[in-house]
């Protein structure tokens, strides 16, 4: 296994200063464009930063952290894709209030030396929870910067001891129609439940890969995938499977939910790639939540240095 140290990515490389706009500025820009002057006075109460914790940037940045300004706690917890709770971005926050992330059991199976049922605490016991400020790029061409807390997935993998024949790891979300309204639906079922995802084992042990357990220094909110959620910042957001209850090691490349749903639109790798468009929209640009103008999307979401080597020699157009 190759562990690379990230050299700091200068923030200037990622966020041109002049492109940066906060949400308030979005409103101002939009108003100016619409010819409405003095929007600031029209909207004295806009952008309530409800529950926003102290800026994580105040702390020293870790080797994998971005220095870009993080999105607010409010944005991160009210704009979610979590279809189990509903298909609109506001549904997860509304419909996840009664979700029970405790107690939580994760079943580990397949090609490993430590299979079995693990409680949440047992699974991460002995592994230090780290702060990671990552960019997140959604396949829908929007992005955020999110200060997660979590355990390096590599450490969890090491603990579960995959055998030498294991090449891939598959994850599954909870299946519980009592807690997930969309799983109760029989007519116009959105996806085949439970949601599942997969990684190559070297991807899962890449130092960037994280099992998130917290956000902005608080326990992971239900709508963000509590209690355990995968984060692979160089891949599109849908790879970040939420509320994980199952980990399975295998030697065959697993499918994932979206690939199963629409194989021409979503692949196994789902690495952020501005050169490979989604059939229905361009991936060349993205809109950072809170900004008005779009910005160019970077290969591997700006994490080439840490991950590009894993895909050397691969045709990324075919392996999208």
């Amino acid at each position: 296994m190759l562990i690379q140290r990230a050299s700091d990515i200068a923030s200037s490389e990622i966020t041109p200063e002049d492109l940066y706009h906060s949400r308030r500025e979005f409103i101002k820009t939009a108003s100016a464009l619409l010819g409405i002057a003095a929007a600031g006075t029209i909207a004295p109460g806009c952008t309530p930063n409800v529950g926003a914790s102290p800026e994580p940037q105040a702390k020293k940045l870790g080797p994998y952290d971005t220095a870009e300004k993080a999105n607010s706690f409010d944005d991160i917890t009210h704009y979610n894709n979590y279809y189990e709770f509903g298909v609109d971005k506001s549904d997860p926050e509304k419909n996840s209030k009664k979700f029970q992330p405790k107690p939580w059991t994760v079943k580990v199976e397949g090609m490993c030396n430590k299979p079995g049922s693990y409680s949440f605490d047992d699974l991460i016991k002995g592994i230090t929870v780290e702060d990671r400020i990552y960019r997140m790029r959604c396949v829908e061409a929007w992005s955020m910067v999110i200060p997660w807390q979590g355990v390096p997935l590599a450490d969890v993998m090491k603990k579960l001891e995959p055998t030498s024949s294991a090449k891939y790891v598959e994850f599954k979300t909870l299946l519980d129609p009592n807690q997930y309204p969309e799983q109760r639906r029989s007519l116009f079922k959105v996806l085949d439940w439970p949601y599942f995802e997969g990684l190559r084992l070297d991807e899962a042990t890449n130092p960037l890969a994280l099992f998130a357990t917290g956000l902005y220094g608080k326990p992971l909110p239900n709508q963000n995938g509590a209690p355990l959620r995968l984060i692979t910042p160089w891949k599109y957001g849908f790879k970040g499977i939420k509320a994980i209850v199952n980990i399975r090691f295998t030697d065959k490349q697993p499918l994932n939910t979206w690939q199963q749903q629409a194989p021409n639109e979503y692949g196994f790798y789902a690495n952020v790639n501005p050169k490979v468009d989604h059939p229905r929209w361009s991936q060349a640009q993205e809109r950072r939540i809170g900004e008005f103008f779009k910005r160019p999307t970077l290969p591997f979401n700006g994490y080439s240095e840490q991950v590009a080597r894993m895909y050397e020699g691969m045709d990324l157009r075919k392996n999208f």
Binding site: R23, I27, S31, A39, T47, N71, K89, I289, G290
Partner: peptide, 13 residues
């Protein structure tokens, strides 16, 4: 909603 912050984090959408 646009001018009172009643839209989501992605107002354009």
């Amino acid at each position: 909603d646009t001018f009172t912050g009643g839209l989501s984090a992605n107002p354009l959408e």
